[in-house]
C-alpha cells in the first residue's frame, strides 16, 4: 500500500520545513449565538487531528468557515510553508462531507477523467484511471455506472479518491466514516493513515473510539473555542475520561 502511495503522491522531500495551518481570531455567530469565539490555533503537517465536540458545538461551521462556504465574522487563515506565510487558497483545501456529494449525471470513470483533465497541471504522476479505482477497491463493474446509482459507501470512496488525487495541503473530513459498513470503514482508516504525511488532516467525529484509534491529536471544540487535550502520561482509559469530563463541562447553553 505504502509503495503505491509513494508512486501516487511523490515523497516529502528531506529538509523541507513542515507546513503549518494557522487560524487567527476566527469568529462566527448566528443571530445571538456565538459559535466560534475568536479562535487561534496552529495545525501541523503530518498529523491527523480528531475534532471532537458536542452536538451543535459548531464543528461543521468551523469547516465551512475554513472552506469559505460561509463567511466568517472575522479572522484570518494562513498557510506557513518554507516560502513564508500566505493566505489560504481554495486549492489548499480538500473537504470530504459526511453525506458524500458527487455529480449524479456522470459515471465514476467520467468523474475521475473530468477531475484529472481539470487538474492536469497540479496532478503529479497521473495514472491510468483503472489504477485509481483498483486502489480504492471499486469493482470494475461499478466504474461505468452513473454516480446516482452508487451506494453511500462508494460515493464516499469517490469523494475521497478525488480529494486524494488533488493532494490538498489540508484535508477536512466531516464525520466521513459514520455511515460506512465495517469493511469500507477499515479501508478508509488505513487510507487516511497512509495519506497523513505531507498534509494536515482534520477529522471531525462523534465516535470517541475512532478518534483515539486514528488521530494523533485530540482537539475539542468547546464553547466556541479550540483546545488540545494533552495525553501526557495518561493511559487510554484516563485519557478518555479526561475528554468526556472536558466536554461535559459545557453543560447546557
Amino acid at each position: 500500500m505504502d509503495s503505491i502511495r509513494k508512486i501516487l503522491y511523490g515523497i516529502l522531500y528531506e529538509g523541507e520545513t513542515a507546513v503549518k495551518f494557522v487560524i487567527e481570531h476566527l469568529s462566527k455567530h448566528f443571530e445571538k449565538k456565538e459559535v466560534l469565539k475568536d479562535i487561534d490555533f496552529v495545525f501541523e503537517e503530518g498529523k491527523i487531528y480528531g475534532l471532537l465536540g458536542r452536538n451543535g458545538a459548531g464543528k461543521t461551521t468551523l469547516f465551512n468557515c475554513i472552506n469559505r462556504d460561509i463567511r466568517s465574522d472575522g479572522g484570518n487563515l494562513f498557510l506557513e510553508t518554507e516560502e513564508g506565510r500566505r493566505e489560504l487558497r481554495a486549492e489548499d483545501i480538500g473537504y470530504v462531507l459526511s453525506t458524500p456529494t458527487v455529480p449524479e449525471f456522470l459515471t465514476g470513470r467520467e468523474f475521475l477523467k473530468f477531475f484529472i483533465d481539470i487538474n492536469e497541471k497540479s496532478v503529479r504522476n497521473p495514472k491510468a484511471l483503472d489504477e485509481y479505482f483498483d486502489y480504492m477497491s471499486i469493482a470494475p463493474e461499478d466504474r461505468d455506472k452513473l454516480l446516482k446509482d452508487y451506494s453511500h459507501g462508494m460515493k464516499n470512496k469517490m469523494q475521497m479518491l478525488v480529494n486524494m488525487i488533488a493532494e490538498p495541503n489540508i484535508l477536512l473530513l466531516d464525520e466521513p466514516l459514520t455511515s460506512l459498513d465495517v469493511v469500507v470503514a477499515e479501508e478508509m482508516k488505513s487510507l487516511l493513515r497512509s495519506l497523513k504525511q505531507g498534509r494536515i488532516t482534520i477529522f471531525s467525529t462523534h465516535l470517541m473510539d475512532l478518534a483515539l484509534d486514528l488521530c494523533d491529536e485530540i482537539v475539542l471544540l468547546n464553547r466556541g473555542e479550540l483546545e488540545v487535550v494533552e495525553k501526557s502520561s495518561l493511559d487510554s482509559h484516563g485519557f478518555r475520561d479526561k475528554i468526556i469530563a472536558a466536554l461535559k463541562e459545557e453543560g447546557y447553553e
Binding site: 472552506n67 480538500g94 473537504y95 456529494t101 455529480p103 480529494n163
Partner: peptide, 11 residues
C-alpha cells in the same frame, strides 16, 4: 444534478 455536488470541491 451538477453544481450541488461539485461546488463542494475547491477546484
Amino acid at each position: 444534478n451538477c453544481d450541488h455536488s461539485l461546488l463542494t470541491y475547491s477546484f
